[in-house]
Design a protein around this nucleic acid. Structure first.
Lengths: 164, 164
DNA sequence: CTTAATCCTACCAATGCGGTAGGAGAAACC
DNA sequence: GGTTTCTCCTACCGCATTGGTAGGATTAAG
């Protein structure tokens, strides 16, 4: 498994916030009910997003969370970094270098890892895929799915659950 | 963490076998000592590789393992699939479809996952990186490292404890 | 001052991972 | 034929992490 539910729930949370057109804060309780996720667990997850300045919060009644930045500018690699810590292909990749880029620890014990070469490629593939996906894109996707689904459940003749 | 030590050790094992020029089988004990890995654990790992027809074994004294195929033709996505089961970005990706391609389980409970869209991209990035890396490439890389290292530690230009 | 929300921290069960132990078969070599 | 050296197989175990809960403090609206 590459990611844990932290990433899953955290991204969903952000998408949910992104769907909100106005800038009124959304309570975690609403999101938890909407997505069917445990509230107490979401609280800990949203804390990670806040620490990374991806969401803002207002406390007290009628409070909640809203996106701190334009969804277009939020790329998934920052999001996943905030949620999962870092994307390390292998346990020997200790997270040293500032922003998620990690390097192998046993560089030269005996023979230099041929595996390191491989894992670096994999890591590149993952971070590239994450970086080229923005929150806005996911929000748009989710909105499209909504349309498709309501059409399908209503029995109309509109495009089905395909992407286009 | 994307991969466990199964992938790490398994790939190393294959590289070690690939370094062997002749077709004489190599014992796990030799590999374990060479790489500093626990023998009993390697036994379980190599069983996965054998089940996937990536290595052949001969039992008894002077027995051991050898590659079952040309290293050029062995891509890392088969290897990792054999070792790790499947590369699933998220726990909701249950491995159904034959060869490692996995799909999301909660396709349409409430709203169709925008996250699924993301994880599929990530999975694509990983498998693509794995598929374009062959065992032969890793073996060559490891050999190159040997030369560089022996030159550096000995100051001479002779091969060190390499296969030949 | 009650209510609804964010915050914070400690706790807990289950799972999986890395590793060990102890053998049982199979082939080479004396 | 027996010993040695391997592959094979299965059960076990400590440990860390994950996913989730509990309980409460703080803050602000009404």
């Amino acid at each position: 498994m590459i990611f844990t539910t932290k990433a899953e729930y955290g991204v969903r949370l952000l998408v949910e916030l992104g769907r909100q057109a106005n800038d009124a804060p959304v309570s975690l309780k609403a999101i938890a009910e909407n997505e069917g996720l445990p509230l107490a667990y979401l609280e800990r997850i949203v804390a990670l997003l806040k620490r990374a300045d991806l969401v803002e919060s207002t406390r007290g009644a009628h409070g909640g969370y809203r996106l701190a930045r334009d969804p277009e500018s939020v790329t998934m690699d920052e999001v996943v970094l905030a949620l999962e810590g870092s994307v390390a292909p292998m346990s020997c990749f200790v997270d040293e270098t500032d922003d998620g880029r990690v390097l192998c620890s046993h560089v030269d014990d005996g023979e230099a890892c041929a595996t390191k070469f491989l894992w670096l490629r994999v890591q590149g593939g993952v971070t590239e895929a994450l970086r080229r996906t923005t929150l806005a894109e996911l929000v748009a996707f989710s909105a499209k799915q909504d349309v498709a689904q309501s059409a399908e459940t209503l029995g109309s003749a509109l495009p089905l659950h395909s992407a286009a």
